[in-house]
């Protein structure tokens, strides 16, 4: 019996962690966005198959649409900036002290009417009518907002914008002119640098932007919650996309294209090609790709591509989309 025990002891001592067996590498071509989209805008071009330009997500505060008839103003909410309209139309006397509610961010659809600033000018007729609404630009800190500037957009035409800013802390007034540029969809302004920045590459040279943006999500209880998500926007300049959840990536061919309903909605690809499981106890957030989604994209050059996401993780770190694409 003692011998039996010794034998059993030997077996028990030999028990140990299981060794891995090698696996085969992924069979397709994998493209990786090499700058984390939590921190960078990456402008991707299908024709060259690479990212042609990047910039930091927080380089800008306000964005201005550059089309001749455009008046659309964007706010960089992922940087923590939000817009709240006031009832005042006089920026000189605007009162920062009243409790402000209704802080807004740009809806990701790209529709000018759905922006945080909204429609501040009526350009439907020959004469432009300005609402002269004074907006507050605030920064989200924890769960409250700190006003930074009062803003009043006072002019737009085919070449430029003008707006007035009033510093919350110093009450200094400044009038700023933004010049539209033909080569980009948007031009940007940075309050800290007090300068206009042309961050976007030529609008004819890219198709997709990998970036962080704000979206309204809903809790399990249906509570709307502004939430920073990481996803993909279309180049607003003639790029369109459709989603196919029926056919697999390999099955999609040229014949399919006519069956798709393409959309130029900026966030048609968006963020929900992935999902996440959060474990607060373990302090981890594990992202996974929603299977069965193939996006068909008509590029700025008019070519069609199919794209499927493979991963949101590179070298084990989240924020690096990896995907496979092929021209149809």
């Amino acid at each position: 019996m003692r011998i039996l025990l010794f034998l059993l002891g030997g077996v028990l001592l030999a028990s140990c962690f299981e060794e891995d067996v090698p696996v085969d590498p992924y069979p397709g071509d994998v493209t990786t966005i090499e700058n984390n989209i939590s921190e960078y805008y990456s402008y991707f071009d299908f024709e060259t198959g690479r990212v042609i330009h990047t910039h930091k997500f927080d380089d800008w505060d306000l964005g201005f649409a550059c089309g001749k008839n455009d008046w659309h103003v964007r706010v960089n909410s992922p940087k923590g900036l939000f817009i709240a309209p006031t009832e005042s139309q006089d920026i000189l006397t605007v009162d920062f002290s009243f409790p402000v509610t209704g802080w807004k961010f740009d809806k990701p659809s790209g529709n000018p009417d759905s922006s945080a600033v909204g429609k501040w000018v009526d350009n439907s007729g020959d004469l432009y009518n300005y609402s002269n609404t004074v907006y507050l630009l605030g920064e989200k800190t924890d769960v409250s907002y700190q006003p930074l500037f009062a803003l009043q957009f006072i002019f737009v035409d085919s070449t430029r914008y003008q707006f007035i800013s009033k510093d919350f802390f110093t009450s200094l007034i400044d009038t700023i002119t933004i010049l539209k540029t033909d080569s980009a969809n948007f031009t940007f302004y940075n309050f800290k640098l007090k300068s206009q920045l042309n961050l976007e590459p030529e609008k004819q040279k890219y198709d997709l932007i990998f970036q962080i943006y704000y979206e309204m999500l809903y809790t399990d209880d249906g509570i709307p919650t502004p939430y920073p998500v990481r996803g993909v926007f279309l180049n607003p300049n003639a790029v369109e996309a459709a989603l196919d959840t029926l056919d697999s990536f390999d099955e999609i061919r040229e014949d399919n294209i006519s069956t798709y309903q393409f959309s130029n909605k900026a966030d048609i690809i968006g963020y929900d090609w992935k999902d996440v499981t959060v474990d607060f106890d373990a302090g981890s957030a594990v992202y996974f790709i929603v299977q069965g989604r193939t996006y068909i994209i008509r590029s700025v050059e008019g070519n069609y591509y199919k794209l499927k996401f493979l991963s949101y993780t590179f070298n084990g770190i989240n924020g690096y989309p990896r995907f496979e694409f092929k021209q149809i």
Binding site: D24, I289, S311, Y312, T313
Partner: peptide, 21 residues
């Protein structure tokens, strides 16, 4: 104690990598 929290083979790692804690 040594505890291995091995990751599954997942698509987002292209079934070729795993994050093991």
């Amino acid at each position: 104690e040594e505890l291995h929290d091995n990751d599954s083979l997942r698509s987002e790692f292209l079934y070729e990598e795993a994050l093991d804690k």
